[in-house]
Design a protein around this nucleic acid. Structure first.
Lengths: 205, 205
DNA sequence: CCTTTAACCGACCCACCGGTCGGTAACAGA
DNA sequence: TCTGTTACCGACCGGTGGGTCGGTTAAAGG
């Protein structure tokens, strides 16, 4: 039962454009026709491929968002160096607009999580799963950093991961409008400041 | 042109219940009838007091949200002590559920800001104003702390304020469901850790 | 070719919701 | 007691948007 090429292509076009517009205007504020018009497709075409708007969005989450978050925030962590600068770099990079896509994939998570919170339990779960994957990987790389002597022994890795994620998510709310250059700089600076307090103390000569 | 007592009372009942339900289910996901049914009021009554749903929400923001945020996050800062523990305490307190009201007023801001972002410019502005007041007060108390010798001279107060607000906001996204006890604890611990790195270095004996 | 099935079209349905409007009840002041 | 005003009622309107369905086109397979 191979999916035909045509089918795959149309579904992918729908998902890609859907992510773009949902990200711009929000899920509930975007009608299917908003998306279909831009693709010159009809309601009929849509419901031939997806069984509902919800099903459609879940496809987007699983096919596009997961990969993007993974590529931007999880894979960069896979290194043997000191994890703290690596984490800073990955966050800095994730905040950079228009890198190859012009969407801030880390931010979307915050927006969508808030939007679906208490409105759609199922979609919320899928989104939370993504955060969980990120968190687990952060914790693991932090623990490795502890073993390798980059991070002080007293540090609570789970707590640090939570704090990193929270501050990153929260930046979205603040960066919503304009002047994001300054905000991003402030954020990265303070993050580094915070990370300094997690480092193993320099041994006195 | 005094507003009659009856009028004030009904308007206040509407605002209070509105805040409660909007906070629970979101603005766009709550119909006026959802609120009116609970108060045994009619559409007619509503439009006798407010000119639109938007106008109504703005009333809620200005009459209720502003005060609450002020009381929870701004007023506690007004002290002559070391500001850092004061800030921690205010955030800890703001995260405490069911203190006298069972709504986390700090959190609402994050939710509503996200919800109105790109959907209603005017309401977004009112909400951002609240954040701004908070930020300005944070910066001011941090600067005072610097003068008083509690905070190291190299610290960028604006950056710190941004970082505090971001992490606080972001906690909402993570605390959405269950297990908030643990998360709150982790957050406060890491915040303290971060603050330690802002303190004036202990003078060597 | 002819048949079958996948891809797609778009008119239509209906529930929901913000907002309107012509009323009624109650109360205050004269 | 009469009158005007304030508070409130609830049927109704109209736009919106998810989802349906009876089609048509086009490609694939025999």
């Amino acid at each position: 039962m191979e999916m035909s090429l045509k089918r795959r292509e149309t579904m992918h076009r729908l998902c890609a454009k859907g992510l773009e517009i949902f990200n711009e205007k929000g899920y509930y504020n975007t009608s299917l026709d908003d998306i279909l018009t831009e693709l010159n497709l009809s309601k009929g075409a849509f419901y031939h491929h997806f069984k509902s708007k919800e099903d459609y969005f879940i496809s987007i989450v699983q096919n596009l968002m997961v990969q993007k978050v993974y590529a931007l925030l999880v894979e960069p962590l896979d290194t043997f160096e000191n994890p703290l600068p690596i984490i800073v770099e990955s966050l800095e990079n994730a905040l950079e607009p228009g890198r190859q896509n012009e969407m801030a994939y880390g931010f979307m998570l915050n927006d969508f999580l808030t939007e679906f919170h208490k409105r759609n339990e199922e979609i919320s779960r899928y989104l939370k799963d993504i955060i969980n994957v990120w968190e687990v990987n952060l914790v693991s790389v932090l623990k490795k950093g502890k073993v390798d002597g980059h991070i002080a022994r007293h540090v609570d890795c789970e707590g640090v991961a939570t704090y990193i994620i929270a501050s990153f998510m929260g930046m979205r709310t603040l960066m919503m409008d304009s002047s994001n250059r300054q905000l991003k700089y402030q954020y990265i600076q303070q993050l580094k400041q915070y990370f300094k307090s997690l480092e193993t103390e320099r041994v006195l000569a």
